[in-house]
């Protein structure tokens, strides 16, 4: 539980971000690819950039084992995401749900879908237009961390909001 907490915290602080954030999902094409200089458009310091979203707002939330409920920390991150999304209306988002490897394939796909959906619903409840949000589940097929301990599992039980430039889906 402690580890999970730590994970959540990290996520909440945006530190958990995202060396790998856009590895997955074709929708991630437009996101944060630029690694320009400080303050440059598209860089981490450009508050309207996907990179900023990933690093500062925090693009992901973590879940407890076999759960899709949003913790308080997660809700905080998502609230940040929602307000950012509402400010930056040119982006749409694909929400990826993931699970750790401790589960069977189909179930984990379904679980990932639940997690993605939980995030989607929360963002909508915060005012983000539903047509800007899509969900997908990768189940356990795309872990972020590859060790087989809770330290990694906790990072893999996640929902990642991947930004795509361009309105409407």
């Amino acid at each position: 539980m402690k580890i999970i907490h730590a994970g959540l915290l990290i996520a909440a602080l945006g530190l958990g971000a995202c060396t790998n954030a856009d590895r997955f999902g074709p929708g991630a094409g437009g996101a944060g690819a630029g690694a320009g200089g400080a303050g440059a458009p598209g860089s981490v310091n450009d508050p309207t950039s996907a990179a900023y979203f990933n690093a500062t707002v925090g693009d992901r939330v973590l879940f407890a084992v076999d759960q899709s409920t949003l913790s308080a920390e997660a809700q905080q991150v998502l609230a940040g995401q929602a307000s950012w999304l509402m400010t930056n209306g040119a982006y749409t988002a694909l929400i990826e749900g993931h699970a750790d490897e401790q589960g069977t394939q189909a179930y984990n796909l379904a679980l990932g879908a639940r997690r993605a959906s939980a995030v989607q619903n929360f963002l909508i409840s915060q005012g983000v237009a539903p047509n800007r949000l899509r969900t997908i589940s990768y189940g356990k097929e795309r872990p972020l961390e590859i060790c087989s301990t809770e330290a990694c599992y906790s990072q893999n039980r996640r929902a990642v909001t991947v930004l795509t430039a361009g309105a409407g889906l």
Partner: peptide, 9 residues
């Protein structure tokens, strides 16, 4: 088959 709609499979 399974279909996930709105998070529900």
């Amino acid at each position: 088959y399974s279909e996930a709609k709105g998070g529900n499979t």
